[in-house]
Design a protein around this nucleic acid. Structure first.
Lengths: 208, 208
DNA sequence: CGTGTTTTTTACCATATGGTCAAACTACGA
DNA sequence: TCGTAGTTTGACCATATGGTAAAAAACACG
């Protein structure tokens, strides 16, 4: 058809398409996570991806498309640890495992964490819809589960919603505020310390 | 001398100067906290301040000057609650009061919190120096105090550094991730719940 | 090969943005 | 009221940025 942009609903994206889209998204993750949406430029993304700017616009319909694609792909991975909480498991261990997983993600995927933080900080203009569709149902389901555990006396009594907020904030802090953490814990492995601190924190909070 | 910009080292800034600088900084706080440094524009700031763009550049030497001025003014206020921890006080109560104060600031000054978060998220390029000068000494002093309290068995044993990180993250979360909190706690007073949750959290953690 | 398709590049726009300048205007003390 | 220092503005600039068009290059495949 037209000379521009790969056919939509492409049944079988070529190897080149796959490779270049991946490159672009990886470069964009670098740039967006560091500068936020409006601070990032297509030129920066292009340079980091080793492609020309028009070439990026051959694969994506625009800057926003790249950003939204990143956020969409992120949401699932981001929620995975919460989905893995086992309603049949031992409550305290399930929560502690969740905390550990979140902390791990914070260390392994700091760019994703910061991308998300940037987006939410600015009012979640692009990811807002996902909150209602994906995040909220899972959040409420998990709250219900925790509340049940609490009512069965298998967990110390807490407000499940704020418990989850605290888990999110404490774990993501190490990625999002890395510049500060680095400045205050020079040449130390913040991660190891964080793991054991958070283990103690939530163990003392939640032990019935 | 020159027609431009108020004399430096002005011994007595005029009433107009005071008023307009305040207006500009307030408008800039709105804009920077929402869009980050690079996403904010002088035009936006000018409009919100009710002044013309050149007029802003009459009071500040540039966009960066406005931003840095905000950050400088913020740092002191931000650290005040930590300075108020009383080494002679009752340890648990001192910490809990600190948590409450931080949470209050998060609610009363969400723009400041987000401005700070934006800055740190992007690697603290402009506030970095302050980390070494103001933040770090206070941080380490406070860590030492907490460690002392722990060693005297007046607090449950914890790593003071990660304790402080957790206090920062949990309290600031309600300002920085407000968009998310709002989406998940519709039409509820998140603050009241947060106060009592964090009180329980740190009470259980720190009770000897 | 040769031909049609996909991918990449070169050369551009239009607009937004940080910043400048000199002229115009205002406040205020003598 | 006048004059001067302080303040404000309209008209500009230079550059950066998101995006486009069309030709060129690379590729797939008979």
């Amino acid at each position: 058809m037209s000379h521009h942009s790969p056919k939509n609903a492409d049944p079988k994206p070529s190897r080149i398409q796959l490779r270049n889209r991946k490159r672009i998204l990886d470069a964009a993750l670098d740039v967006f996570s560091q500068h936020g949406y409006r601070g990032a430029t297509l030129d920066q993304i292009a340079e980091r991806a080793g492609l020309s700017k028009p070439n990026i616009l051959y694969y994506f319909s625009g800057k926003e498309d790249v950003h939204v694609t990143l956020l969409n792909g992120l949401m699932d991975a981001w929620l995975a640890p919460m989905r893995e909480i086992d309603p049949e498991g031992e409550p305290l261990e399930e929560i502690l495992r969740y905390v550990r997983r979140k902390l791990e993600m914070s260390r392994e995927f700091p760019r994703e964490s910061r991308l998300f933080a940037n987006e939410v900080l600015q009012g979640a203009p692009r990811i807002g819809p996902h909150f209602g569709n994906e995040l909220k149902p899972l959040f409420e389901e998990t709250c219900k589960l925790i509340a049940k555990w609490v009512s069965e006396n298998r967990l110390g009594s807490v407000d499940a919603r704020h418990l989850i907020f605290s888990i999110w904030s404490t774990t993501q802090h190490y990625a999002d505020f890395d510049a500060q953490v680095q400045a205050l814990l020079p040449s130390e492995d913040a991660h190891a310390g964080a793991v054991s601190f958070l283990d103690i924190l939530y163990r003392r909070l939640l032990t019935p």
